[in-house]
Write a protein that binds this DNA or RNA. Structure first.
Lengths: 202, 202
DNA sequence: ACTAGATCAATACTAATTCTTGATATTATT
DNA sequence: AATAATATCAAGAATTAGTATTGATCTAGT
């Protein structure tokens, strides 16, 4: 018997959880119950500045970016997320206050979403998820801290090289414009960096 | 790279209402209170099949289309709406049942939205809006009936000519693909119609 | 004064979308 | 049965949107 398209889109999440901490059948059922799949199209907002972030998102396929628009109207990419990553404005989600951030689909993207209330229910029904989400957020925290450190301590060139190391799969998947915005430099400068580097290592 | 913030321009809606039936200050205040601006980007869904239509939408700028996907996977445009028009799946909105229709942005589109509950409150606070919304829906009804009649009684060529008459501002604003889908013909056939017509009136 | 980087404007390149055309089929009408 | 209206499929052509590069010039911090 083959699973319907919706059920099968939950598989990657079950696998992800099992990989962190194995789930029993009842726990897997809870995942099926509380996470709902949703497709976003390229350029579509998952979260828009001013709205409250109401969902925890797990990415099944595609790519999202979280960014902030500053007073001058410039955008700064906070992070990209692809398959098997999470995307959420935690601050807004827990405080239930309007977000200052935007989340947008870079490609058509399938996510699995759980609402605040359902997440709370999930924690009560299956306390193991407290552990799972703790671990998962710790992972994100570490990545974030690494990125901060990287950012305050390196030149643009170093940051770009580190980006290539850390996210080789993103280099050809994202426009350089976006990568520049992630690195905190202008697209022009990134272009120059790249041409300089390719002259050095032909 | 700039992606400006959402400007809250409720003015066009106030003007629209005043044009139908003049509002007093208190009534204008209610409009400011209950309608909230929201920006949709090109290709973004305002309503997706299966979701419940939770908002009455007034279009400040841009263009939306409502369409249905049939069993064969073909899409049929029910209508387009631009500046100063309304867009909603009334059936889903009032029944609170999942919609079979889709609403999608053809361009970046700014809308003013009011939810079911807020609309109810508005009606109670300012009964004049009952009259306003009655008139407004009557207008839409008339347009719809005209379109139906057009559709069952004319050839594709006649429908196309009528479209040009009725929506001259849409002809160059929308891809022919979409116009074909509105007229209920294939884009290829529309293309042939057009070239035939332009040979007749050079 | 030098380096890392920004800004602005022009141009080049690439990919996505849209439009047209030809060949051939289907369906409804007379 | 013949004809007009319209669909389908496939291939190219044309257009537009999005992205990348380059040159010239500017600025802030060592």
């Amino acid at each position: 018997m083959k699973e319907g398209p919706i059920k099968s889109s939950i598989r990657p999440l079950i696998n992800y959880f099992n990989n962190l901490i194995p789930l029993n059948d009842k726990e897997q059922d809870s995942v099926f119950t509380y996470f709902v799949p949703r497709l976003y199209r390229k350029r579509q907002y998952i979260l828009q500045e001013g709205d409250t972030c109401a969902q925890f998102n797990f990415i099944v396929s595609g790519c999202l970016r979280m960014y902030k628009i500053d007073e001058k109207g410039n955008t700064h990419v906070i992070y990209f997320a692809t398959e098997n990553w999470w995307m959420i404005d935690l601050g807004s989600f827990y405080s239930k206050k309007p977000s200052e951030l935007n989340i947008e689909a870079m490609e058509d993207t399938m996510v699995l979403q759980i609402s605040y209330d359902n997440l709370t229910t999930l924690y009560m029904q299956a306390p193991k998820f407290n552990r799972i989400f703790r671990v998962l957020i710790e992972n994100s925290y570490v990545a974030l801290q690494k990125r901060l450190l990287q950012n305050i301590s390196s030149t643009a060139e170093e940051r770009y090289l580190a980006f290539i190391e850390t996210y080789p799969h993103l280099i050809n998947r994202l426009p350089q414009l976006q990568i520049a915005s992630f690195l905190g430099i202008t697209p022009e400068f990134l272009s120059r960096l790249r041409s300089k580097l390719s002259k050095q290592n032909p």
